[in-house]
Every structure is written in structure tokens, then in C-alpha cells.
Design a binder for these strands. Structure first.
Lengths: 228, 228
DNA sequence: GTCTATAGTGCGATAGAC
DNA sequence: GTCTATCGCACTATAGAC
């Protein structure tokens, strides 16, 4: 019995609250608010509102006045949680990447069989993006807002998750599970398919394509190439 | 003998100049410059510079002062060619879409055999994005800058080119060339792969993957699913 | 046809009252 | 801990000289 989205989301509670509490505890010196409960609650509001507005209009187009209005926190209040609009961007970017990568790695290291591992990695990635669509969309579409010195972060992240798929496929080739048909290119294309799921969410929703259907299709598609 | 990029680019001269002349002739009343040669020359500079800067920093982050400096045209001169920054965006967006779609359709209607048609459509799309990478990147990544009433334009465009692939595959299913394995989903995934080529250009360049290699890989990958 | 100078707006960020 | 009021600045867009 393969993993389903319902099962995965039941067992994995990915609350923005956890991200915010982590961030708060690691940055007590720069955040001016001293009560944890208040700080975490407002951080959750700020992050969720920023993600929503960025998804609608882009981070650059969103003004802090928009954020203030929509989050129902004054401009002054907002600036107790971050030093600049730029820093707000980096908070979301870095913490989002960290969270996603951590879960992905932790989940797939449980499997050892290449076949099962590849299927699981695909499903976990799809299910994560299904649970936090705004985060994935933000991380993909808003990299342009990073300063030059930070541009390497998303690049490394792209190559890192791709590397996970390359390794699985190469292990499968060694063990004879898969044919030796361009593991690097295959991994690239897997990433492209995973990204299409959250980048074109509107299309698949309209067509009533569920994430489980998409996962199954992806697996069949890829396996028909590396197994046939 | 299948089409190659070298052959395609030799036979198809996609100059930005053609786009600009078309645009100029269709908008003589709003463009204040009366000499065609001057207008087209400056329009080419404006469009190329805008595309370059948008690819580097995003259209929203690019100020008209940046564009003025980099294009070596004064702010006043720029405003002879468009009415607002918003209009400049739409000029690039609409004319780029039109050009790309026109060439794609014209090229593939020459083929009648589904098998050849699918291969050709894939190659033409890849080769077009190889010849105008900045345009494709712009059209994909900058849709957020469209006003709400224009958001349907890129959506229709996405569905339109996808429809081309759906039709080819369905014809192939009817004629027995392809198996009947989810033509709609297959077309979606083809689009995702085509997009990955120009969205992750940095990655493939670094790995010395040529567009012809990518095309061949894509074709083998897809055919192993719909033919095996 | 292109320039410089500037008007007018709305932004990010902050100071200080409560 | 949150608010309002406001500063200084950089932006889009334009007017008028050349």
C-alpha cells in the first residue's frame, strides 16, 4: 500500500507556528517583543499575510502599507518583528527552504530499496508542496528579490534536491533496478515535474486532478523510461 | 534526418527589429516619433535593455532611471515610445506571445504524421526559447505585473500551446501510433519540460547540455511512455 | 527628437506619545 | 507592545528649453 496524501497530512503537522517559534527563539536579540506567545502569534500573521499578498501581486509590489492593512498590525508594530522589508524576505526564504529540505531528507532516509525510495521521494515532495503551496510558490518565483550575494542559496537548494534524485537513480542502476539512461537528465526532469505541480496549481485544480493522481502519473511516466 | 538547432536558426531569423517595426506601424498615433528608422532603432534598444534588466533584477525592481541609464536614452526620450511603465510591460508581453505562438503554429502545420509532428513541435518550441531566452523567461516570470483584467492572457496562452500538444497526441492515439495513456497529463508534462529548458538555462549550460541533446532526451522520454 | 529640471506621489523607515 | 505622525527619499511622469 503506497503512501497517500491523506495519510501523509494526517501524520505530519506542518504548522507555520513551528517555523515562527523557531525563528523567534533564534532571534530574541533582534526581535523587540519579549512575550513569546504574542511574538509567535503576530509572526504567524505576518508570514501568512506576506505569503498571500506575494502570491497575489508579487513581493516587490506588496508595500508594507498593504501588509499593515491586511495583517491588521500598524507599520510601527511590523517593524518590531523585522528590521527591513528585505529582512522579511530573507526570513521567509531561508526558514522555508530549511523546513522543506529537512522534512524531505528525514522522510526518505527511512527507505532503502531504490524503487520504493524514488516513489517515496516523489510523493513526499508533492505532498509537501500541496500542504504549503504558498511557500513553494514564493520560494520559486521570488528569488529575484534576493541580493546578489544571496543568489547562490536557491541555486544550491535546487541542486541539492536534484542530487537526492540523482543518487537514488544511480543506486537503482547499480542494483539493476533501473536501466542506465541518463540519471542526471532524468533527475532534472523529475524536478521540473514536481515544480509544475505547484506552479500550475490553478490548472490542475480546474481539471480535478488530485495530488495522488499526479503522483501516480509521474511515477508511471518516469518508470516507463528508466525501467522499460 | 531530424531538425537541428543550427539548421533552424539558420532558416529563421527572429529579429527583435521585426517585432519593433510591427509594433511601430500599428501604433503610429501613440508613438510621438515620426521617422520610422529612428523609432525602430530606439525601440529595439528599449526592448532589449528592458529584457536584460528584467532578467537580472525583475521588471518591478527595474526603475525607468535604470532603463534610461542602460539604454542611453533620457527619461524624456523613453516616454516618446510608451505612455507608462505599465504600458512598456504590456508591449513586451503581448508582442512576445504573439510572435512565439505564430511561429510555432506555422512551423508545425507543415507536418501531418503525428509522430513527426510531436517531435517537430517539441524541437521548434525548444529552439525558439533557445533563440529568445530572455523573452521566454520574461513571459513566464513576470506575469504578476499584469493588471487583474489581463491575467487571463498568459493563462490562455499556456492552455493554447498545451492544446497543440494534446491534439497531436490524441490524433496519434486515433491512428494507433500512440497508446491511450492520459493525453492531457502527458501534454502538461511536455509543457513543464519545455519550460524547464529556459527557466533553468544556467544549469544546463554549466553541464554542457545542448538544446539538441535536451530535445532528443525529451523525445525519448515521452515516447517511452506513450509508445511502449 | 532629445534633453534637463522638476512636479507630485507614495514608499520604507522611525520617533515619540500612549 | 502598539499606535499615529512624519521624515527623507526615490520613483513615475511631464513641461519646456534646445
Amino acid at each position: 500500500m503506497e503512501l497517500t496524501f491523506a495519510k501523509f497530512s494526517r501524520e505530519n503537522n506542518l504548522s507555520v507556528e513551528d517555523i515562527c517559534r523557531d525563528f523567534y527563539l533564534n532571534n530574541r536579540e533582534t526581535i523587540k517583543i519579549k512575550k513569546e506567545a504574542v511574538a509567535v502569534k503576530n509572526l504567524v500573521t505576518i508570514l501568512n499575510t506576506t505569503l498571500r499578498l506575494s502570491n497575489e501581486m508579487g513581493f516587490q509590489s506588496m508595500t508594507l502599507r498593504d501588509l499593515s492593512r491586511e495583517s491588521e498590525l500598524s507599520m510601527g508594530a511590523l517593524y518590531n518583528y523585522f528590521q527591513s522589508k528585505d529582512e522579511l524576505f530573507k526570513i521567509i526564504h531561508l526558514n522555508g527552504m530549511k523546513l522543506i529540505t529537512n522534512i524531505l531528507i528525514k522522510q526518505i532516509e527511512k527507505e532503502s530499496d531504490p524503487d520504493q525510495k524514488l516513489r517515496k521521494a516523489i510523493r513526499i515532495h508533492l505532498y509537501l508542496s500541496e500542504m504549503m503551496p504558498q511557500w513553494f510558490y514564493f520560494l520559486y518565483m521570488e528569488t529575484k528579490n534576493l541580493k546578489k550575494e544571496d543568489r547562490k542559496i536557491p541555486i544550491e537548494s535546487e541542486l541539492y534536491t536534484e542530487r537526492i534524485f540523482i543518487d537514488i537513480i544511480e543506486k537503482g542502476v547499480e542494483s539493476g533496478t533501473y536501466l542506465n539512461r541518463e540519471p542526471l537528465m532524468t533527475a532534472s526532469i523529475i524536478k521540473a515535474m514536481l515544480q509544475d505541480w505547484y506552479l500550475k496549481r490553478w490548472k490542475y485544480t480546474k481539471r480535478n486532478v488530485t495530488v495522488d493522481h499526479y503522483a501516480l502519473f509521474m511515477i508511471e511516466f518516469i518508470e516507463s523510461y528508466i525501467k522499460s
